[in-house]
Design a protein around this nucleic acid. Sequence first.
DNA 1: TTTTGAGTTGTTCGA
DNA 2: GTCGAACAACTCAAA
Length: 493
Amino acid sequence: MTTVVWWVRRDLRLMDNQALAAALASAGRVVPLFILDPTLLSSSYVGDKRLAFLLQGLHQLDADLRARGGRLVVRRGDPVDELARLLGESGAEAIWAEEDFSPYAQRRDDRVARTLPLHLTPGLTVHPPGAVLKADGAPYTVFTPFSRKWKTLSLPQPGAVLPAPDRIPALADVHSLPIPTEPALPSAVPFPAGQAEAQDRLRAFVGGDNPPIYCYGEMRNRLDMAGTSQLSPYLRFGMLSARQAVVAALSATAAAPDAQARKGAETWLNELIWREFYVNILYHFPDVRRQSFRANLKDIAWENEKAAFTAWCEGKTGYPVVDAAMRQLVQKGWMHNRARMIVASFLVKDLLVDWRWGERWFMQHLVDGDPAANNGGWQWTAGTGTDAAPYFRVFNPILQGKKFDPKGAYVRHWVPALRRVPDKFIHQPWQMPLEVQQKVGCIVGRDYPATIVDHAWARERALAAYAAAKKAFSLPSEMMLNTNQALEEEVNE
DNA sequence: TTTTGAGTTGTTCGA
DNA sequence: GTCGAACAACTCAAA
């Protein structure tokens, strides 16, 4: 009887797992393996909440395997060494894994494949990067044409979603480390790990009469309502397959009772395509991890003031919607998408802090923190990325608060000091007359911070800094152009 | 090769 | 209070 290894990386599920299915189809016995990789675990981009979610996911996966006669083997070390050792111990002839496209994953898998029989299957995305290309073979750098092309490629049908295998027999004599229990998931983090929870959430989002997905178009921007799917952590670690999510979105679109419902389902599908778009961008342009995608905004004169950054991290900027969101992030390990844009715009444009500082802070706290999507989002907001927001688009934290948290419920939930502030002032408490401040027990500057920067002034400063960066970029190249012209003229003479 | 239409998520100003 | 235009060009994708 042949044996193969199913190497789990960010596909912590038995359901609709093409790597597991291929492993089972190729051999009589499968050894499920997860390697705790010190290179990944010690990264400054990893935080306790996401690590805890991953560990809890491993416990769940192990429980799911045990229910099928198997178990998860856990090792710690360099993947090449650990895989070679396990192959030797178990007599396994091959390794099956779901392909991952981040720069580190690519390097790691190249190293493994050099000496070991590694087979990769699709699954992280519905269409792998390299499948969605322009007519001339180049990758897309604008979302809308990317999404159009993405939709013309063959889309998964409901029948394509693979059920979890019934039995995955264990190899009795293979050693495994205990799955770590530290760090534990804080009770405030509302994401129990595992594929069963992911299935429940997906069903709740797309199933039943008038499911939330049909209101997604209108509700998704509201900070004070639960209009989003809350599935991102599960997609991040593959506790839900991208394919199953896409099938659910397509089915919901097909069954939509009216135009508004269809719009909602299509908008959610678009979010899934955004996820794949940024996987593509990071795959084809790995430099975006370190620097601006746009050459003309590589050298912005950031202020990078430590105190301002700290105030942002701690949710003490004096702008209620920013502070609420930053506190939500640290406590829950998750932030509403609209809020991510608001706080990112505030850090980059109002405080003129390098977007990479914010990118790292997000990665340290987000349970769903994904290198591709997080980088894409930050570069979009900073205006430095592919298909980015125009540089003059600066979010006004007061207006955004009024629009998307009209009664201030979101702000009050995360910033208790503002609980009794009247609606009229909830997004600009500094405008409260002193007697109102006293009456509601919220003295600005004592119970709640005064604003650390004036928005109107900061907006002008940001526009000037961006304009200067662009000008500094264009001047040398103009000089180069002039030099070339001069040379040409000389030659012509 | 050239041309044309289009591009996630906003804000401000003035009518 | 509501509405449309300006913001400032620029680059991409596709015909």
